[in-house]
Design a protein around this nucleic acid. Sequence first.
DNA 1: TAATGAATAT
DNA 2: CATATTCATT
Length: 299
Amino acid sequence: MREDDSNWFSRWEEQLPPPEELMPLSQTLITPDLAIAFDIRNNPNPPTIPPPQQQQQQPPPSSLPSSTDFADSTELTSGTAGEEPARTLKRPRLVWTPQLHKRFVDAVAHLGIKNAVPKTIMQLMSVDGLTRENVASHLQKYRLYLKRMQGISSGGGGGASGGGSASVNDAATDHLFASSPVPPHFLHPVARPNSDHFMPFVPVPAIHHQQQMAAAQYHRPVGHFGSPPNGHFDNPFLSRQQHHQQQNQHQHQQQLHRIGAQVHHNTLGGGGGGYVEDMESANASGGRKVLTLFPTGDD
DNA sequence: TAATGAATAT
DNA sequence: CATATTCATT
């Protein structure tokens, strides 16, 4: 028994975290600013602090608001945003889209609750830009969600204080979680110390053809309200990086080619009533950068 | 040490 | 409320 395909599942774990395949960070994939904002660990290059350059992706492929001409085309120095402490940059908040969550659940399902730890999940998801902290935070919430489901079904009085009526899981608490099917074995401890192998779950199969993105910029921050009753989300997914080195391309804003994430400026305030998403508004006290990561284009 | 999980902060 | 960040254990 050396190379039997029969026990490939026995060693699938070793195949999971390939060497550099998983952690090469997408520095070449995403925009430089983004890479920096992401604090790549692979980059032992702390010094050389890049200037607080805030570039915005120009979405309008062919349409320009035209009209209204502005003298200063440079970004506006919005008070707080204008000055950056240089070091210690913070990345925008990660937005867990249904697809991203799908991968998350998928990874956890294949890993099993046992091994479902942030680090492993993160590696399995193979989503560039995703950090262990991101997964950890989401995992925490996900566990609460699972616990909640168990509690409501078991009748018991487990009553959590607050009288949260969790009778039917359709409330606004489920939001994202309701979008993805929860594996059955999640609800109860799978006592299977021996047969706990399902499938290697290809981390990142293969990127299909080139992604045809363009007007994806207007990704509407579906506030989780419009859950897809039966349709899919139309998100401009972007898959993990690929080793496709093509130098033929001229150096011309290739930003529209392969971007691992998109940054949105969400203006949100306590009383801000406008739900209109505008990425141009960098209000001093309100500019909230949101990063929308896209899972590999597979579902 | 580094990672995890829960608590806490934004 | 959804994430981020901090903190105590391991």
